[in-house]
Design a protein around this nucleic acid. Structure first.
Length: 430
RNA sequence: GGCCGAGUGGCAGAAUGGCUUAUGCAGAGGAUUGCAAAUCCUUUUAUGUCGGUUCGAUUCCGGUCUCGGCCUCCA
């Protein structure tokens, strides 16, 4: 078995994964902002980290996986105003929808799924501590983080903000261009604080929740690539300001799902509604498709790609659905996943094993690590189908091929595929 | 403008300093079949571009082109 290696964005290289405590691995992933249902692009992230979670559980006796819900921010407030409903109703509704989609796509529940609004108290405490430690200052009912107090601020972004072309504006309350809000005044949705009624900034939410639940430092911090700056940059700064430590050791970031060569995002209105896709495609096919390219590479959403994933899934299902699941995963799949979660390679290895009809039990176990199952949704009327299959067989024996083909078409309409193999007639769901 | 990433056969997408150049889909031919389906066998096509290092590069280095991302909320 190979060593586990992960690409650490902080170092820009693959590193061997060595947990702080090999009895208990701690992972934090930035979850969705629940003002609008997550789209397939968001789910690429949740699925890849779900695979990481499953894989780590396979190796370490205990894994604590935290994925938060951002249930308070500007977009939530404006969306709830737009729809004229309380922000709580909006976030509850979107959360329910997210749970539904996650279940369909076989995304496991994280160990903890904290909501930001349940940790306001911790955030206020942490902000006070940051002020006390000299990393934050108060301005006009706002509290801001002083980015110049953290020397390593640019670790992720390097020379990103050069003089020309930088789009950051110095507002009247900011002392430095990279300073960011920890607390801001608010009069529609607010909590009381030492600085008046207001609400937290986005970055402190994740810091307070990960600090409270996992403690600093924890092992892996995950998220989409677009979070590197400013979100994760600022989380590191806050963690340092609070505990004088890097809050996480490994930072891993997934690339995006593109559509027509452009990033899919909620704000650019090219996002595909997962609910509609789930009506059209088997969720396992969508999941497999999203795992068919490496998480650090951009991938393009395409019908052809889904069709291909559908073919692979159908092939796997034919070989594995009746097989008893094994206890161990294939070593080739282990090594593929150990090498920076190389899911396309893992898929290749599973396909090879199935093709050679080798260790199918372990192949099925490997599928489980990828979160691919072969359970049929919905019930089918076995007696009805068996009856039709037998009727067709009789017609075939009598060489009444018109009738037999008619029944085959009828079954096909019901989503049942007939196969006349050498060892008898088989049927399966499409 | 700065920083980052990507460019592999018809498509998707791995791997690799040289060896029989994956895998899947599609295409072609064949076996099997009442016809199909499924399965099996055979088979065609590739590493953006220009240089450098090397006995040898798709792989390392540099230039160049193209595309994408971040620099504002974003998985």
């Amino acid at each position: 078995m190979d060593k586990i290696k992960l690409f650490n964005s902080l170092m820009s290289k693959k590193e061997e994964f060595i947990p702080f405590d090999d009895k208990c691995v701690k992972i934090y992933a930035c979850g969705p902002t629940i003002y609008k249902s997550p789209h397939v692009g968001n789910f690429r992230s949740f699925i890849i980290f779900d695979v990481l979670f499953r894989f780590m559980q396979q190796i370490y006796p205990k894994v604590i996986y935290v994925r938060n819900l951002t249930d308070i921010d500007d977009k939530i407030i404006s969306e709830s105003k737009l729809r004229n409903i309380p922000h709580k109703s909006l976030t509850n509704e979107v959360h329910e929808s997210f749970k539904f989609d996650s279940e369909k796509l076989n995304v496991l529940n994280p160990t903890y799924e904290p909501k930001a609004t349940e940790y306001i108290h911790n955030m206020i405490q942490d902000i006070e501590k940051l002020i006390e430690n000299g990393f934050a200052y108060v301005a006009d009912g706002n509290v801001l983080f002083d980015s110049t107090k953290y020397d390593d601020y640019r670790a992720f972004c390097k020379n990103m903000n050069s003089e020309s072309g930088a789009r950051i504006e110095l507002t009247s309350i900011k002392k430095h261009e990279n300073d960011f809000v920890l607390w801001k005044p608010s009069n529609d949705v607010f909590w009381s604080s030492p600085w008046g009624n207001g609400r937290p900034g986005w970055h402190i939410e994740c810091t307070s929740m990960s600090k409270e639940i996992l403690g600093f430092p924890f092992d892996i911090h995950c998220g989409g690539q677009d979070l590197i700056f400013p979100h994760h940059t600022n989380e590191r700064a806050q963690g340092y300001g609070l505990c004088n430590v890097d809050c996480a050791k490994y930072w891993i970031h997934n690339h995006f799902v593109n559509i027509d060569n452009n990033k899919m995002s909620k704000s650019s209105s090219n996002a595909l509604d997962l609910k509609k896709l789930l009506e059209k495609y088997n969720p396992m096919v969508i999941r497999l498709f999203l795992l068919m390219s490496h998480y650090r590479h951009p991938m393009n959403w395409s019908e052809d790609g889904l069709e291909e994933a559908g073919n692979i899934y159908a092939k796997w299902k034919r070989s594995l659905s009746e097989i008893e699941i094994g206890n161990t995963i294939l070593s080739s799949v282990y090594n593929a996943l150990a090498d920076d979660i190389n899911t396309p390679l893992a898929i290749k290895k599973i396909s090879e094993i199935i093709k050679n009809n080798e260790d199918l039990g372990s192949a099925k176990k490997s599928c489980e690590i990828l979160g691919i199952h072969f359970n049929d949704a919905g019930s089918i009327d076995n007696d009805l189908i068996e009856g039709l299959v037998q009727k067709r067989e009789e017609a075939r024996k009598n060489k009444d091929y018109n009738l037999s083909d008619q029944i085959r078409d009828q079954l096909k309409q019901m989503g049942i595929i007939i196969e006349d193999s050498k060892d008898g007639i088989k049927w399966r769901k499409e």
